[in-house]
């Protein structure tokens, strides 16, 4: 049975986000809650998550943020550590289905009602203003929590001893390049896993050209290929081979340049 999450009404998303202007994470913590009168559930199709379960989720996310230094400004390593831990938890323990995870208003509830202070800590305001995408779910590849669930879902490898190990293999900037900025590539989970595996292999190879430069160049090449290739049916080992070939081409090109 699917677990249904509250969906924040659009007008309430706008109202709550407007009210965040200029407020610190600690101030936002005072307005956090596990319910909203302006949130609703899907009519059918599952069991509604309880307030206690939502509170437990909020407490877990907050605990992971505290481990990352909350409420002090986090460094890169702390942000990566927080992202990986929350991604695992959201994917492994919330019972959220891909369909429910595609609902923008679900993420708006989590970002604006349940843990707005943690999202504000993870993506701090600039000049007194927060970025709406990080809270409202208008772009699920950029929402503070939705993007983590999506990463965990795409990189999950049921055959591995630790199914979430691939998430730990690359940093935020590299994953962002793959998931948010090359969406045609990110749509094929097996391709994303192959890209991460090949990147890890290459990072350990001791070559002169930085692996990150090779990753970015090879992503451009793969993007061009996915315009006319359907890779979704191809075994992962063959996709990995294709990615390795593109990385070799990228390295040659970058070495010459």
């Amino acid at each position: 049975m699917s677990i249904l999450f509250p969906r924040l009404l659009p007008s309430e998303s706008d109202r709550l986000f407007s009210g965040m202007r200029g407020r610190t994470p600690s101030e936002l913590r005072e307005q956090a809650g596990n319910s909203s009168l302006r949130a609703v559930f899907a009519a059918t199709g599952g069991t509604r998550v309880t307030r206690n379960e939502l509170q437990l989720l909020a407490t877990t996310i907050e605990t992971l943020a505290i481990a990352g230094g909350y409420p002090e400004m986090p460094g890169t390593a702390q942000r990566n550590q927080f992202d990986r831990a929350v991604a695992r938890h959201l994917h492994q323990h919330t019972g959220m289905t891909p369909g429910e995870a595609s609902q923008r208003q679900v993420w708006a509830f989590l970002g604006l009602v349940l843990v707005p202070h943690v999202c504000a800590w993870r993506f701090p305001m600039k000049d007194g203003v927060y970025v709406a995408d990080r809270f409202k779910g208008s772009d699920l590849t950029r929402h503070t929590l939705a993007r983590l669930w999506t990463r965990a879902h795409v990189l999950y490898d049921s055959a591995a001893p630790d199914p979430y190990a691939l998430m730990d293999a690359v940093g935020e900037a590299d994953l962002d390049q793959i998931m948010a900025r090359r969406r045609a590539v990110a749509a094929t989970p097996a391709l994303v896993r192959a890209i991460v595996r090949a990147h890890v292999e290459d990072s350990n190879s001791g070559e002169d050209t930085p692996a990150r430069a090779v990753l970015r160049d090879s992503l451009q090449r793969l993007l061009r290929l996915t315009a006319f290739l359907d890779l979704d049916w191809i075994p992962e080992e063959q996709i990995l081979q294709l990615v390795r070939e593109q990385r070799i081409e990228s390295r040659k090109h970058l070495d010459v340049a």
Partner: peptide, 19 residues
């Protein structure tokens, strides 16, 4: 070969359902 894949409108994640 023929491949059929699907995705929900609000997400970019595709799934293959038939090959």
């Amino acid at each position: 070969g023929i491949n059929v894949r699907y995705w929900p409108g609000t997400s970019l994640l595709r799934q293959t359902v038939l090959h």
